[in-house]
Design a protein around this nucleic acid. Structure first.
Lengths: 355, 355
DNA sequence: TTGTAGGCGTTATCAT
DNA sequence: ATGATAACGCCTACAA
């Protein structure tokens, strides 16, 4: 590795001051075409380009937005142990950031190492987006006191001066329940939730419960079963659930759990959707691939990431804009696992007919 | 946003020099327990933590490794237009980096904007990993002349002083062909490749061709059809292919194309695997979900990302270590789309029996 | 259009 | 164990 050249070399070699070199590389005005060409040429000669780090220090703008997310995977377990959801958030964030000339610095918090990692990442960024559960609330508050922060969760809570962006979780599961009850006539629904601390899971259950009550049906106080937001988590939770009772439909907290549910139900000798209907949440690509095709709630995950980055960058530009709380819409996607056939809803059939 | 405090405030307020504060926050020696507590306390009071940017400038170590990847998606198209492959690489890179105390700065190159973006990202990093096709070869070379670079591709080529890490593509498709020919007795195989410029696609086809010849069969000079490495790309390519001729088995360049192939074949009224067998490459999670379950070649994508980061960081530590070229193994994963049933290979059946 | 010089917030090298 | 004080590589008024 040859010694890196600096702006000084370039300036000297092209017979100008460092200020001029700086102007040529950055603010595109304040120099003649001739000097620009000369500077650019010697820069190329020397293989030099300005240090983003030094630039960041001097201009107080790093061109980096951080993205903190939780990684539940142990590293030992199968790939399905890590929520695919986050991949989409990352992509969405990346697109928005790159479009605006910034890059995204990612890091996953695992276990209790969160705070330190978060500060380390934040110290290199202009702002940070924090995916729900990546960081303790007070750590988020501490961060937000130092630089712009957006939280990916519709829980605005007491997150001091942090913007929030989330999706309409309640409306999502609400629509599912309505469909299941009104179109299919199911009356015995169960909810299989994610980790009990997850805001998403909590809100989705709230929507489930509210819709059930609105339909004049009984509703449980808490999810009928819970597990990690993963395929195996869903499989375990559902296996346990059907060992206990036989709901006519199982509303799952996300697609990965629903896919696990499919496996568990097959293992229990139950047919989907004939014996028990299953629904998910997310509309991952896999939802279209599993058998039967999964009825689920689509949420614009990529947009979540993009929107969060936008919020952060907005606050970087003007730190004192009012706090925003953005809620993105969800949309019911009807496929076959609910009992619909090619988009057609079969005539409601009394429960129990199939034993 | 309150004025950010600096190391000066902290130093003054705790009655020590900035040097001591620096010591306390960094390499943990050279101070008494008492002063450490004092410094830490006032740091917490002021909500201060050291600027990663300033730190990077002074120590010539940013704690950031860059990850450049291509994004083919137009932004308009469906999510399946963006290779899932990259998500895994990102995750693998992130894990390895975080484990070593670094973070990953990601950015996607789209169209011709690559070079500028690459330099902008690189200027903030200690080293960079470049996913195949993210950057022109000479741009990679220019980068590598300035900082450690690892390329994700087994094409070592003339990439000046860049490490390379890839997978055994040839061996992978070779194993598929062997299985198809020896176990199932298929003799008419077709290869559906990705973008013609893709090193991965080229090598996978090379393995396909070599294995065919080794089995004493005829082999085409070029893929029987090509398309983007996406579901829709695979669907289109296969639809076109079967409109032309009817191979007994279709070896696809990756899983996403294979999944598209499944759709296209269903659309053409052909059964898989009875009428035509299909195989993929990657072993994405989706491969286990599609119907029939996809026989494919597993490659350790996450490990690719991890290994690349490791290579970069190794070179950051000692810039003059010899160039490494790492090739990770692939593994045949037999499921049902090749004609096997629950892991059992049915007795070979003459072609054409099924018409 | 171009140059001068101070500053950005740390780390690191000498001293003490 | 602690303190001065140069770097680190660039940006940006302020001048010319």
């Amino acid at each position: 590795m040859p010694e890196r050249s600096t702006i000084y070399q370039v300036a000297e070699r092209s017979g100008v001051s460092t200020a001029t070199v700086s102007r040529v590389m950055g603010n595109g005005t304040g120099f003649s075409a001739a000097t620009r060409d000369r500077v650019l040429a010697t820069a190329a000669e020397l293989g030099w380009f300005p240090s983003g780090t030094a630039r960041g220090l001097a201009s107080r703008r790093n061109g980096i937005v951080g993205l903190l997310f939780p990684d539940l995977g142990t590293g030992e377990s199968a790939e399905d142990e890590s929520p695919l959801y986050v991949d989409q958030v990352i992509r969405g964030a990346e697109r928005e950031a790159t479009a605006r000339g910034d890059a995204v610095l990612i890091a996953a918090t695992r276990g209790e190492s969160g705070r330190e990692l978060a500060f380390s990442v934040a110290s290199k960024c202009d702002g940070v987006v924090v995916v729900a559960r990546a960081l303790a609330e007070n750590d988020v508050a501490d961060l937000a006191q130092r630089l712009p922060v957006a939280v990916l969760s519709d829980r605005v809570g007491r997150m001091a001066r942090a913007d929030a962006v989330g999706v309409d979780n309640r409306g999502g599961t609400g629509a599912v329940v309505e469909h299941l009850v009104r179109e299919h006539g199911y009356r015995d629904l169960a909810f299989v939730g994610g980790p009990s601390g997850s805001p998403d899971s909590i809100d989705r259950f709230a929507g489930f419960r509210a819709a059930l009550l609105a339909e004049g049906l009984d509703a449980p106080d808490r999810p009928d079963a819970e597990g990690a937001f993963t395929e195996s988590g869903g499989a375990r939770a559902v296996a346990e659930l059907v060992g206990r009772r036989r709901p006519r439909a199982i509303v799952c907290g996300n697609d990965e759990m629903a896919i696990g549910a499919l496996t568990a139900l097959a293992g229990a000798g139950l047919r989907v959707p004939e014996d028990v209907a299953v629904t998910g949440f997310d509309d991952l690509a896999a939802a279209r691939h599993v058998h039967p095709h999964l009825t689920t709630v689509a949420q614009p995950i990529r947009d979540l990431g993009a929107e969060a980055v936008r919020a952060v960058l907005a606050r970087v530009a003007s730190p004192d804009v009012e706090r925003r709380s953005i809620v993105l819409p969800t949309r019911l996607v009807v496929r076959h696992s609910c009992g619909c056939v090619h988009g057609q809803v079969p005539a409601p059939r009394p429960e129990g007919e199939l034993g």
